[in-house]
Design a binder for these strands. Structure first.
Lengths: 193, 193
DNA sequence: CGTCTATTTGAATGTACTCAAAAGCGGTGG
DNA sequence: CCACCGCTTTTGAGTACATTCAAATAGACG
């Protein structure tokens, strides 16, 4: 098994076990792709046909509201999956954008191949069920945090959850994740020191 | 097949098809339970061992923050599933409460039986994957709405998404769902007419 | 090196919250 | 079936957290 698949296979084998043959069937479905800094994987209006797994770099998914403000739905550092789930499962035009924050290497699995995989190797259905359950839990917690915590506390949470990202991302994006304006974020940060 | 299972079987068969035998295996795992108005199905600190499917009445899941404010994570009218996903999948103490808003009839499926079902009839793994995917999408949209819409717009969204609930729920709970105080909600409503 | 974007800072504003008190309403028990 | 009690809703005044707009500064990339 080539090492370029090591990361994704380890990711999957945290929840299910695979034979070498199954690993081969799976990796044969993957397409590797490089993204330049700032390059889009998905733009609003496109139909999302792939789940992406990040090997290196960092992607993020965000939507733009009517006031042109960006709201970040998820960050995807290495070893994370990202997609616009709404568009992926409904095959309707996406309301999100997915973009590389820096030069990144990703593996793509098309929804069509994923569906085939579910039939061929039902364990993958299990894997993605578990993955989705975990996303849902994280998302619900984030929703509660947004409803009950102050911007300052949400920022502290963020630094705990994504310690690496804090130093690599522009402040603007952290602000867009925790749900404040860049101006307010700047003031908040200076007050904290 | 007894009609008391009609609703849940129809719910499931929207995404997978089942033979009569599979239906029987599944329904044999369900426990029926009645809840009185205001009764708790789950309280903070308990471990969530069941997914609940609502036959009649209405449940809701909510968490209480340090200022004793309630935040509603989900409503479950008839034909909906509800559980504390975090506690259910991690088997850690719950941070949520689940409660009946009015007298309700529910069917319970234990996590242990659910796991067995996934092995015995892999189609159920598919069903719950799809269900979880849909919850995730709804949750992400709600998060974005909370970040980008005013309280007034979130309320309008709510009335469109849950037209029935609007008239059956106390305002306090709608306020706790859209993320405003009951006082502000009241002022907002009077301003809208 | 120059340009473009991100960050900082300040002043004015607004949306939503807190606290308090009165009014309304519904469920429960007598 | 009515009356009471407790909870929900309303209303008002004062406040706070976060936004908007504007302008200056700093930083990053080509």
């Amino acid at each position: 098994m080539a090492n370029e698949y090591q990361l994704i296979l380890d990711n999957i084998c945290r929840y299910i076990s695979l034979t070498d043959e199954e690993k081969q069937i799976f990796t044969a479905l993957l397409t590797r792709r490089s993204l330049k800094r700032g390059e889009f994987l998905l733009t609003e209006g496109m139909i999302c046909r792939y789940s992406a797994f990040v090997l290196s770099g960092c992607l993020f998914g965000y939507s733009i509201d009517r006031d042109a403000a960006e709201h970040i739905v998820s960050f995807a550092p290495p070893d994370w999956w990202i997609a616009d789930m709404y568009s992926l499962i409904s095959q309707q035009p996406s309301t999100m954008n997915i973009r590389a924050h820096e030069a990144s290497e990703i593996l793509l699995l098309s929804r069509a191949d994923q569906e085939k995989l579910f039939i061929a190797i039902p364990k993958f259905e299990r894997f993605f069920r578990i993955l989705t359950e975990k996303s849902l839990v994280a998302n619900q917690q984030r929703l509660i945090d947004n409803l009950s915590l102050s911007a300052e506390e949400r920022y502290k949470n963020f630094t705990l959850r994504y310690p690496t990202l804090v130093h690599h991302l522009p402040q603007k994006q952290i602000a867009a994740y925790i749900g404040v304006t860049p101006e307010f974020f700047s003031k908040m940060k200076s007050k904290l020191s």
